Amino acid sequence: MSSSNLQALTVLLERAEAERDEALRFLQDAERRAQAARLQHDQLSQYRSDYQSRWKQEFAQRTTIQILGCYQNFGGRLDQAIGQQAGVADFADQRLDAARRVLQERELRVASVRKLIERRRAEALRTEMRQEQRATDEQAARAAARGGNPLNRLVA
């Protein structure tokens, strides 16, 4: 394999590795965002549960229609916020899944380019070995044609 071909494949490998590294950073960012979105959803849900528990205790005592209306209004807005946050968390999970797929594709690309370089190097080595063997065979054939085995002259 010529050095220019090897250099081109090396550049291709470096680019593929850079793209893979970028995909890894994107995946890590997506993981942080998804985790933060789920945590916020969980916190809102826990707050709603605590809020309901506090107000149930309050309702056991005396309450007014106005306070009940405020409770229901706030509870409704809280449920709406929880639903929106669930949507945000779902979207973050979808982005996380997409980031995983992209990273897998980029890792496969890096592995493919590495394998191609390995094959090309092995092919170049085999070609070089064949050329060396051919040269050795030609040299031995010329020596035999000139008068026999050159080793016989050294021994004698």
Rank of each mutant, 00 (worst) to 15 (best):
Glu17Lys: 15
Ala92Asp: 05
Arg126His: 01
Gln72Ser: 03
Gly148Tyr: 03
Val102Ala: 14
Ala143His: 05
Gln94Pro: 00
Pro150Met: 04
Asp42Leu: 12
Asp79Tyr: 07
Ser45Phe: 10
Arg114Cys: 01
Gly87Tyr: 06
Leu12Val: 02
Arg106Tyr: 01
Gly69Arg: 14
Ala37Asp: 13
Val110Thr: 13
Val110Ser: 00
Ala143Met: 10
Ala135Met: 10
Ala92Cys: 13
Met1Val: 12
Val110Arg: 10
Tyr71Val: 11
Asp79Trp: 09
Arg77Met: 02
Asp21Ser: 08
Ala145Gly: 00
Gln72Ala: 11
Leu39Lys: 13
Tyr47His: 07
Thr10Leu: 05
Ala145Ile: 03
Ala92Tyr: 02
Asp50Arg: 03
Thr63Leu: 06
Asn5Phe: 04
Ser49Met: 08
Thr136Asn: 07
Asp93Gln: 14
Ala99Gln: 02
Ala135Cys: 04
Ala8Leu: 14
Arg48Asn: 03
Val113Gln: 00
Ala156Gly: 07
Arg15Asp: 01
Glu123Gly: 04
Leu68Met: 14
Ala16Gly: 02
Arg126Lys: 09
Phe26Arg: 15
Asp79Glu: 12
Gln84Met: 07
Arg106Glu: 08
Glu105Gly: 11
Ile117Pro: 00
Asp42Lys: 10
Ser2Ala: 01
Gln72Tyr: 02
Ala89Met: 01
Thr64Trp: 09
Tyr51Asp: 00
Leu125Met: 09
Ala86His: 08
Asp137Ser: 02
Trp55Glu: 06
Ile82Gln: 12
Arg142Tyr: 05
Leu27Thr: 07
Phe26Glu: 10
Gly76Pro: 04
